[in-house]
Nucleic acid binder design. Structure first.
Lengths: 175, 175
DNA sequence: TTCATTTCTTAATCTAGATTAATTTTCTTT
DNA sequence: AAAGAAAATTAATCTAGATTAAGAAATGAA
C-alpha cells in the first residue's frame, strides 16, 4: 500500500549490516521505508551512551521528526542492523503528492498507529519496571528477539545490558 | 484552522475544574479539542499511582489512541485542570470528512507535530536526568508552570512530588 | 476569617538499576 | 578451524530517585 505511494517519490537503495544511513547533527533528513531487513534509530547522549529510539523492520518507516517538525538539526542516527533494502524519500514531498482519498486515510491512520505505539512506550517508561517493559517487548515484538543483539534491546528499554542480563537470569531461574 | 474542520463533526461542552471527561476501561473514546482551559490525561497503575501522559491547553487535542489504534479499552483518564470549554468529536468521523487538500496537509502536519513532541519525550525519559527533564519542561511549556500544581508536573516528568521539590530546592540554592 | 483539606517541603531510609570489573560465550574474519 | 573481537554473564559496589513520615504553606469552603 505505502509502497505504491512511495514509488512516486522514493528511490531504492541497499545497505549492508552496520552501515549508517544518517547521522545526528545534519541539516537535512530523509524518510526511510524498510522494504527488507532491519534498521535502528538512536541518539548518543553527552556521556557517549547510545539510546535506541526505534527499530524498523519490513514495512516500517524511520525518520527524524526533530528536523521536520522543529526545524532543528537531526538528533538521530540511523543504522542497518541487517543487510537491508530501503526506499529513501524526502519527507517534505509527501505534501506534494496529489493524494487520493484512500491514500490520505491510509496516511492518517499510519501516523495514528505510530502515535499509539509511542503512547504505550511513554506510559511504560513512566510506570512499568524494567522487567515488565522487557516482558511486554517480547510479547509485542517476538520476532525482534532473535534479530537484535541483547544490548540493543536493553538500550531500547532504557536500561544497561548488565541489567537486562540480570532480569533474564531471574526469569529463567525461578520466575 | 482545526476549529473549522471540527465544526462539522464536534459538539461544544463546558467542564468545571476537576471534572472527569473520560475514564480508563471504557469501550468507547472521544477526541477532545481544547477551546479554552486546560486538560490532563493520565493513567493509574497497579499501585494506584497516577502518571500524567499529556497536558492540553488551548488549541491542543487529547484522545486515547489505545482505543482507536489497537481496539482495546481506553487506558487514559481525562480531566479538567481548569474550567474548560471543549469540542468533543468522534475520532472515527475524521475519515468521513471530505477533506480538502489544505485540510489534509494540516491534519498530517498536526499528527507529525504530535509525533515530534513524543519523540522528544521518549528520548528525554531514556537519556536525561530528572533535573534536566524539569528544566527542559520549564523552557518548552513556561506557561504551564503557573497553571499546573507541582505534583502534576512531577507526575508528567515521571518522578515523585518529593523528588521534584528537592530538585527545585537545589536549583534555587546554589545551582 | 476560620477550619479543613490539599499541596509542598524537608529529612531519613531504602531500592531498582547504574557502574565497574572480571570471566565466559558467541560471532566474525581469515 | 583458529584467533581476535564483540556480546553476554556474574558479582560487588554505588547512586538517583522512591518511600515513609512529619511539619509548613497554600488553597478552598463555610
Amino acid at each position: 500500500m505505502f509502497e505504491q505511494i512511495l514509488n512516486q517519490i522514493a528511490v531504492s537503495r541497499n545497505f549492508k549490516k552496520g552501515e549508517v544511513l544518517q547521522s545526528a547533527g545534519q541539516e537535512s533528513s530523509k524518510g526511510y521505508f524498510v522494504k527488507k531487513g532491519l534498521l535502528r534509530s538512536f541518539t548518543i547522549d553527552d556521556n557517549g551512551k547510545e539510546h535506541i529510539y526505534m527499530f524498523a523492520s519490513e514495512g516500517w518507516i524511520l525518520s527524524d521528526i526533530e528536523k521536520e517538525v522543529f526545524g532543528n538539526k537531526t538528533v538521530l542516527y540511523i543504522e542497518a542492523i541487517e543487510d537491508s533494502e530501503v526506499y529513501i524519500f524526502n519527507p517534505g514531498q509527501i505534501y506534494q503528492l496529489d493524494l487520493q482519498h484512500e491514500y490520505t486515510d491510509y496516511m492518517i491512520s499510519s501516523l495514528m498507529k505510530r502515535i499509539g505505539v509511542m503512547q504505550r512506550r511513554i506510559l511504560a517508561l513512566m510506570s512499568a519496571s524494567a522487567r515488565e517493559r522487557y516482558e511486554s517487548f517480547l510479547q509485542i515484538y517476538p520476532d525482534l528477539q532473535n534479530r537484535v543483539p541483547q544490548k540493543m534491546i536493553a538500550s531500547y528499554l532504557g536500561i544497561t545490558p548488565e541489567a537486562l542480563s540480570k532480569i533474564r537470569g531471574q526469569i529463567i531461574r525461578n520466575k
